[in-house]
């Protein structure tokens, strides 16, 4: 019971801080918009044949990938705050409380996930107005949010784990850049993974090992529909069941590692 109150307190604190700093909100919406409009339309304009992108326009094609990008970057960089909190004494107040380290970690994760979900929702709403091919139904939104949630939990955990080990914000940013950019580009956010199999098989295997791929796969297959609202089988690269199993597995493993990371964290 008291653990639950503590979990709620840690989450509530993160949410309050988030809504008090609007600049974070605006900044995080701008980047995805640039990707959608400039990269999407720009590259889309030079593509003659839509077939290698499942028959939809390139900007539409990358929209699910940009949703994942928003969650991915937002979630991982959330770990920066733990570096800050450790440098100054805010965190001691939490660590001296009668709470399990797993409670503290979970509270922080949920805080970061909430931030990500709020931000990505803005992109989801904008997408509704920009892309007619994007189909929002109760079912599709449920699936999309389920996968974005799993992705956010996974990536927030990774960010917090790295943050719990880094001494400086600069070091954190450097290490995180080395992690998130490959994860983003190797997620199939910008191309179909199966096209890699013959050209560059090692890259294909890298996408298979990347948790973000599974979120992109599930969300693109769910969200983009062809004529008459039929699903586009070209987007069904791994299959929803596998997507769910793999991403869910990543989540659980990272939550365990994160609890350990917080238990052994030095101030």
């Amino acid at each position: 019971m008291s653990q639950l109150s503590g979990l709620y307190a840690i989450w509530l604190r993160e949410v309050k801080v988030f809504f008090r700093e609007y600049s974070r909100l605006i900044g995080s919406v701008l980047t995805p918009l640039l990707w959608l409009v400039v990269v999407g339309k720009g590259i889309g304009a030079s593509i003659e044949d839509d077939a290698s992108f499942g028959g939809v326009g390139y900007d539409t094609f990358i929209f699910p990938g940009i949703l994942c990008m928003t969650v991915l970057f937002q979630s991982v960089f959330y770990g920066l705050y733990i570096v800050w909190d450790r440098k100054i004494d805010f965190l001691k107040e939490v660590l001296a409380a009668p709470l399990h380290r797993s409670t503290i970690f979970l509270g922080k994760v949920l805080g970061g996930v909430t931030d990500s979900m709020v931000q990505v929702t803005i992109i989801v709403i904008l997408g509704y107005f920009i892309f007619p091919e994007v189909t929002y139904t109760v079912r599709s939104l449920t699936v999309v949010y389920l996968f974005m949630f799993l992705l956010a939990v996974t990536m927030t955990s990774i960010g917090l784990i790295i943050g719990s080990r880094m001494e400086s914000p600069e070091g954190f940013s450097l290490v995180v850049s080395l992690v998130v950019f490959p994860m983003y580009f190797l997620s199939g956010a910008l191309f179909l993974k199966r096209n890699l199999t013959s050209e560059a098989p090692y890259l294909y295997w890298a996408t298979v090992a990347n948790p973000v791929s599974y979120a992109v796969d599930a969300i693109r297959y769910t969200l983009l529909r062809g004529d008459g609202g039929r699903p586009i089988e070209a987007f069904n690269e791994f299959g929803l069941a596998l997507d769910f199993a793999v991403l869910g597995g990543f989540c659980l493993v990272l939550l365990v590692i994160g609890t350990w990371a917080f238990r052994t964290m030095r101030l």
Partner: peptide
């Protein structure tokens, strides 16, 4: 704590 530890935001 000796050092400031309240949440200033």
């Amino acid at each position: 704590f000796q050092d400031p530890s309240s949440d200033d935001i």
